[in-house]
Design a protein around this nucleic acid. Structure first.
Lengths: 203, 203
DNA sequence: TAGTGGTCTAGACCACTTT
DNA sequence: AAGTGGTCTAGACCACTAC
């Protein structure tokens, strides 16, 4: 493509304006920009959607349903090996293990199982988490800076099925998330949605 | 927060610079901006991930696996009622129905079923789609401008299980996508991934 | 209607990267 | 070494919207 200066002349506008337009096109994935070599139109425009990352409460309330939270289990445990690897923390550190449920109009919406790195968030040991979910507590107390997310489909085992009010073998969408606060591992969470739940977004 | 002019004074810089900084903070979901009422820091910063939207071929090749494509079925049909509603096209228009498979190292990776609005992309009737998948064909020929995506978990039925080399009842992650080109409905696609496949992304 | 952010201009200097 | 995009300045006008 022509250089910014050329485009500015062609369209009779300032270079700053051209720059902003091209920068936005680059953000949207239509063009690629490199210093010295210039701006090129991408062959396969890399589209991407924004995936909102909300609290269960927010999602439920957006559906105009009544949100209810319940704590199922809360205990301090020694980090099992797989978790230490996942979070990249020393083996055998103490972590807070939490299981809780989110309901929409009293129907199971999401089951959340979470391990929190106590070392990174010492205050969490005193949080009772009876009224407020660990996700919400963490967001207001220790907001993360980086996260990795994975979505997959799983079959409910007997226990999960019981909690989610369905039968064993049902297909459910599961979201696993690991978060860091400036390189420091915060938490690993596994959130399982009720059968039939869809994650929706737009481009 | 202070107004742009105040911040510009405070930091000894031009208002345009402040504006760009605040605009970027707003894009990242940390602040909210409204004319006249000013800029406010959000209580619950709305984080969001970018969800790359790639061709099956690209995903497979990124895994360093060999990609193979196969056309399963290709026929012109009269749009069934549910599809006409989904795409918002007149009932009984002609659509191109395509089923195809994407393989990674000769193992089933994704099954794709797609309906294409012939009226919006007349050329597609002459595309044989033997070498190239409809997704790839559409992207280069008639790139979309808007899309809606839904992810959900499904249980494989007998036919799907056979194609995906698994057993009926297996949980698989499915992506449904409807796309438009400037308000004109283009296509509805349902892409089912092999059991165990995860969609990954970062914040 | 007044004040805010949204956008533009014309000009300048800088940093990176390819040649 | 040269050319590109990246970023900044100082100033201006406009559009929306809360009051």
């Amino acid at each position: 493509m022509p250089t910014e200066t050329q485009l500015a002349e062609e369209f009779n506008c300032a270079r700053a304006t051209v720059n902003r337009a091209l920068r936005e096109l680059a953000e949207q994935g239509f063009v690629e920009r490199k210093r010295k070599s210039g701006t090129r139109v991408k062959k396969e425009p890399s589209k991407h959607a924004k995936l909102e990352f909300s609290l269960a409460r927010q999602v439920v309330e957006n559906q105009n349903a009544a949100y209810r939270y319940a704590l199922v289990e809360r205990n301090v445990v020694i980090s099992p090996g797989w978790l230490s690897s996942q979070l990249n923390v020393a083996p055998n550190v103490r972590v807070l293990h939490v299981i809780c449920m989110h309901y929409a109009d009293n129907r199971p919406f999401q089951m959340e199982e979470r391990w929190i790195n106590i070392e990174a968030v010492p205050d969490v040991e005193d949080a009772d988490l009876l009224e407020q979910g660990p996700h919400e507590w963490l967001l207001t107390t220790a907001p993360f800076t980086d996260a990795e997310v994975a979505f997959c489909a799983i079959s409910a085992d007997a226990r999960l099925a019981e909690f989610m009010g369905t039968t064993a073998g049902a297909s459910m969408i599961q979201m696993e998330r690991t978060t860091w606060k400036s390189e420091k591992p915060l938490t690993f969470a596994r959130m399982t949605h009720h059968p039939g739940y869809c994650i929706r977004t737009k481009y």
